[in-house]
Structure formats: C-alpha cells, structure tokens
C-alpha cells in the first residue's frame, strides 16, 4: 500500500489545508511509513475477531430527556470572530 502525492493533495483539500510541493512530498513519505508499519497487522489472523470501535469497553449511558438553561445569547456569540446582534457571521457561502 502506498500513498501517492495526488492522494495527499486530495486529503489536504478535504481538510481545507494548503500544502506546498515540499510538504506534500514529506507527508506522503510520513503516511507511507505509518501505513507500512500498520501492515504488520496483516500478519495476524483476525477472521474471528470482532471489530473494536472503542478501546475502552463501555456502553453509552443514556441521559434523561430534560432541557436545562441554554447558554445566554451574549455568551453564545462572545467568542465568534464575527457576529451581528443575532447571528454568527461568516463569509458568503455561494450555494
């Protein structure tokens, strides 16, 4: 399994990252090393092993369906880089 530079660029784009040529190369190398290491696992027979989604063996605790006080409107908008008196404001999204 090997990661191409094109794939690195694709993944970067999905993550909204801009990488220069050098970085792309370096990430491709890193990713290939990681995946190469992971390939060790292929040597283990996992046919009868259930997939492990979580490392801690827990089940979800369910919360009672009750509403509490929301955050105040002022606090909600306080940390926003941009807002008007009602809304968060972001650069125009063209549909």
């Amino acid at each position: 399994m090997s990661v191409t530079e094109k794939e690195v660029q694709y993944i970067a784009n999905l993550a909204r990252l801009q990488l220069n040529g050098e970085e792309v190369k370096s990430f491709a190398d890193d990713m290939n090393k990681i995946l190469g290491y992971m390939e060790l696992l292929n040597e283990v027979d996992t046919d009868d092993v259930e997939p492990l989604e979580h490392v801690i063996d827990l089940e979800s605790r369910l919360r009672k369906d009750e509403a509490k006080e929301p955050l105040s409107h002022e606090d909600a908008l306080k940390n926003a880089p941009d807002a008007d008196s009602d809304y968060f404001r972001v650069p125009k999204v063209i549909e």
Partner: peptide, 9 residues
C-alpha cells in the same frame, strides 16, 4: 446580508 452568510445554531 449582502456580504455575509448568517448562521443560527
């Protein structure tokens, strides 16, 4: 808003 998208969460 002509310049921005407004978000209500």
């Amino acid at each position: 808003d002509p310049y921005n998208t407004l978000v209500d969460l």
